[in-house]
Structure formats: C-alpha cells, structure tokens
C-alpha cells in the first residue's frame, strides 16, 4: 500500500513535467477571428431568415389575390365552366407547390442557423 502511494507521488511529480505549452503564438488571435466570422455569419443568416419570412408572407398574400383576380377575369372572358374550373385548379396547384417549395427553403434556413450555432 505504502509502495503504491509512493508510486502515486512519483507519478504526480513526473506528470508535473508533462505540461505542454501551446506552440502556436497566433492561436489566440486565430480563434478570435474564427469566432468573429461565425458571429457575422450567424447575424447574416438571422437577417436572411427574417427577410425570408417577410417575403414568404407577402408571396402568400400575393398568390391569394392573384388567384382571386384570375378567377374573376376568366369569368369575365366568357370561357365555359369546365375550362374555367380547370384553369383555376392549375393555378391553385402551382400556388400550393410554390408554398411547399418556399416552406422547404425556410426550414433549410432555420437548420443552417442551428448548424452554425453547433459548429
């Protein structure tokens, strides 16, 4: 037991000599630079996200108005009813697909922000 404790003391004193110094003098400034760049990236992504949401909402509103105006103008053009309904269906499908596409882009933007945070 005593020998084990001696060995432990010896190991303790030996390990005190194992302290390493960071050999790269510019380490501190490089880490600070990386952090600064990450912060800038994060702010840019945050701004892009805000813009993304605003444009998405504006686009949704625009799509609803456009669909409404199209349906009214087709009614005025005296096109027969089945054709009117088909055209309306196509424009609504395009609208729905565009919404899905932009939701996907927004989700990716959120994920990018999280990725930068977790780097």
């Amino acid at each position: 037991m005593c020998s084990m404790e001696n060995k432990d003391e010896l190991m303790k004193s030996l390990m005190q000599s194992s302290k390493l110094k960071m050999p790269f003098s510019d380490f501190e400034s490089r880490v600070m630079l990386t952090i600064e760049q990450d912060d800038k990236k994060s702010i840019a992504v945050l701004q892009d996200r805000k813009k993304g949401i605003y444009f998405f909402l504006a686009g949704m509103l625009f799509g609803v108005v456009l669909n409404y105006l199209l349906s009214r103008s087709w009614r005025d053009l005296n096109i027969n009813l089945p054709q009117q309904e088909n055209a309306l269906l196509v424009s609504q499908i395009i609208y729905a697909l565009l919404i899905l596409f932009f939701i996907d882009r927004l989700v990716k933007l959120y994920q990018l922000n999280r990725l930068i945070k977790n780097l």
């Binding site: 194992s18 302290k19 390493l20 110094k21 960071m22 050999p23 380490f27 501190e28």
Partner: peptide
C-alpha cells in the same frame, strides 16, 4: 487561461 491545458 486554458489554451495550454486544452492543448495538452
């Protein structure tokens, strides 16, 4: 404070 130990 920690760069040397982190490096070690």
């Amino acid at each position: 404070k920690y760069q040397d130990m982190v490096f070690s």
